[in-house]
Design a protein around this nucleic acid. Structure first.
Length: 273
DNA sequence: AACACCGTCAACCGCAGGTTA
DNA sequence: GTAACCTGCGGTTGACGGTGT
C-alpha cells in the first residue's frame, strides 16, 4: 500500500537557506535536472525536505528568473490578469516570464493593492470603491467577467509557425454567435471579456519537438503559457486537461482535432467572477 | 541611542488533485 | 478499489531592514 514517506521531518533543516545549501542544490540540478524532488535532498546531500528544495529553486535559484523591480507594464498586466483570474498567481506568473507566483503574490499584497486603493478601486473586485453599481460602460467592459453565453462557438483555430516563442501553438478565438446575429458584426469573446489582454487558450506540443505532429501520441497543453500534464491524444478532454473539469466523463471532445465548442464554452464560463 | 512601527519577501503550512503501490 | 504519497498552489508567518519618534 502506498509508498514510503518523502522525508524524515525531524532530520531536516528549516528557515533561511545558507550559501552552501544553495550551491549544493544548484550543482545537483545542473547535473541531474529538475524533478524528483522527493529523492533530491538525499541525493544532493541536503538536510531539507523535497518541498523546500523545490520552492527554493523555483522562487530564488532558477537561472531564468528576472531580478529587480516590476515595470509599469508588468503592473498593468498583473492588474488585468488579476481582474480576470483572481488570486491564480501561478497563471498570472505564467504570463510574466522570469517572475514567480510567490513574487507576484507578494508584490500584489505590498504594492498593487495600495496602488489600486489610491485609484479608488477595490483590489478584490476591481470595481470602484464608492459604488458597486454605477460603473461606467468602459470600466465595466474592462473588469466585468460574464458567464459564457450558450451561443459561444469557436471562431477560429490557428497554428502559429513563424513566431519563435509561440511556434507550433494552436490558438482558439471564441465568439458569441448571438452578437453576430443581433448586431450584424462578429465579436470575439476574449475581446468582449477584456479588451486589454489576449485571452487565447493555446495547445502546443513539447518545445523539444520541432514540428507539430498530429500523429504524436502526447501533447502538452498550455493555458496562459502554463504547462499542464501531457495527455494521450486519443483521450483528450480539453476541459479536463486544463483542469476545469474533474472527470473525463463530462467531456464531449474525442480527440485533439475534434475540440468541441462546449469545452471552450466551459473554459470561458469558468472565468466568471 | 533606543525603541516602536511598518513594509518587504523568503519560507513554511495546509490543502486539493493526481499518481502509484 | 483503496490508502498513502507526490506535486503544485494559495494563504500565512516571521525575520529583517528601514524609518520615525
Amino acid at each position: 500500500m502506498g509508498r514510503s514517506p518523502c522525508c524524515e521531518k525531524e532530520h531536516t533543516n528549516k528557515g533561511a537557506w545558507t550559501k552552501e545549501e544553495d550551491e549544493r542544490l544548484i550543482k545537483y540540478i545542473k547535473q541531474h535536472g529538475e524533478g524528483c524532488w522527493r529523492s533530491l535532498p538525499k541525493a544532493a546531500g541536503l538536510l531539507r525536505c523535497g518541498k523546500s528544495c523545490r520552492l527554493r529553486w523555483i522562487n530564488y535559484l532558477r537561472p531564468d528568473l528576472k531580478r529587480g523591480n516590476f515595470t509599469e507594464e508588468e503592473d498593468e498586466i498583473i492588474i488585468n490578469l488579476h481582474s480576470l483570474l483572481g488570486n491564480k498567481w501561478s497563471l498570472i506568473a505564467a504570463r510574466l516570464p522570469g517572475r514567480t507566483d510567490n513574487e507576484i503574490k507578494n508584490y500584489w499584497n505590498t504594492h498593487i493593492k495600495r496602488k489600486l486603493l489610491s485609484r479608488g478601486i477595490d483590489p478584490q473586485t476591481h470595481r470602484p470603491l464608492n459604488s458597486s453599481a454605477s460603473t461606467s460602460v468602459n470600466q465595466q467592459k474592462s473588469v466585468a467577467i460574464r458567464p459564457c453565453p450558450p451561443t459561444t462557438q469557436i471562431l477560429a483555430m490557428q497554428t502559429v509557425r513563424n513566431d519563435p516563442v509561440m511556434k507550433n501553438t494552436i490558438s482558439f478565438k471564441v465568439a458569441d454567435s448571438s452578437v453576430e446575429e443581433n448586431s450584424n458584426s462578429s465579436s470575439v469573446l476574449s475581446e468582449e471579456l477584456t479588451p486589454e489582454i489576449n485571452l487565447e487558450l493555446s495547445i502546443r506540443p513539447p518545445q523539444s519537438h520541432g514540428q507539430l505532429k498530429l500523429e504524436k501520441q502526447e501533447f502538452k497543453y498550455q493555458i496562459f503559457g502554463q504547462s499542464v500534464p501531457p495527455v494521450a491524444r486519443t483521450s483528450v478532454c480539453l476541459c479536463h486537461s486544463i483542469r476545469f473539469e474533474k472527470g473525463r466523463s463530462s467531456c464531449k471532445c474525442v480527440s485533439m482535432t475534434n475540440v468541441k465548442a462546449d469545452c471552450m464554452q466551459r473554459f470561458y464560463g469558468s472565468l466568471t467572477l
